[in-house]
Simulated assay, not measured.
Amino acid sequence: MPGYRAHLGFGFFLGLITLAALFFWGIFRPSPETMALLMGLCLIGALTPDVDTDSKGQNLVYTLLILFDLFLIFKEQYKWAAILGFCAMLPALGHHRGWTHSWWAMLLIPLPILAAPVLLFHHSWQSVLPYYLALVLGYFSHLLLDRKFF
Rank of each mutant, 00 (worst) to 15 (best):
L38N: 01
Q77T: 10
L22I: 03
Y132T: 02
L8S: 07
Y62I: 01
G85M: 13
W103L: 12
I109A: 13
W125F: 07
G11Y: 03
G40V: 06
M106Y: 11
L14W: 01
P32N: 07
T48S: 08
P117Q: 07
L38G: 00
P112H: 06
M89K: 14
W80N: 14
A46W: 00
P110S: 11
L64G: 02
Y132P: 01
W104E: 06
A134Y: 02
F12T: 07
L22T: 05
A92K: 15
E76L: 13
L111G: 02
E76Y: 11
V61T: 04
L41Q: 06
A82S: 12
S141K: 00
F28A: 12
V136Y: 05
L111R: 01
H95K: 15
S55V: 05
L135D: 07
S124T: 11
S124F: 00
L144N: 03
A20Y: 12
V51C: 03
G40R: 04
W104H: 10
Y139I: 00
F13L: 15
R147V: 02
P49L: 03
L64V: 04
P32D: 10
R29Y: 09
P32R: 09
I73R: 11
L114M: 09
Y131E: 07
Y4D: 07
Q126H: 07
W104Y: 09
R147P: 01
A81R: 10
G85L: 15
A92C: 13
Q126K: 12
F68R: 03
T34N: 10
E33M: 14
F121E: 14
F28E: 11
R29K: 13
F150L: 13
T63F: 14
L144G: 04
L119W: 07
I27P: 01
F71Y: 14
L43G: 02
T18F: 04
L114V: 00
H101Q: 12
L60N: 04
I83P: 00
D54E: 14
Q77K: 15
S141G: 01
F74M: 13
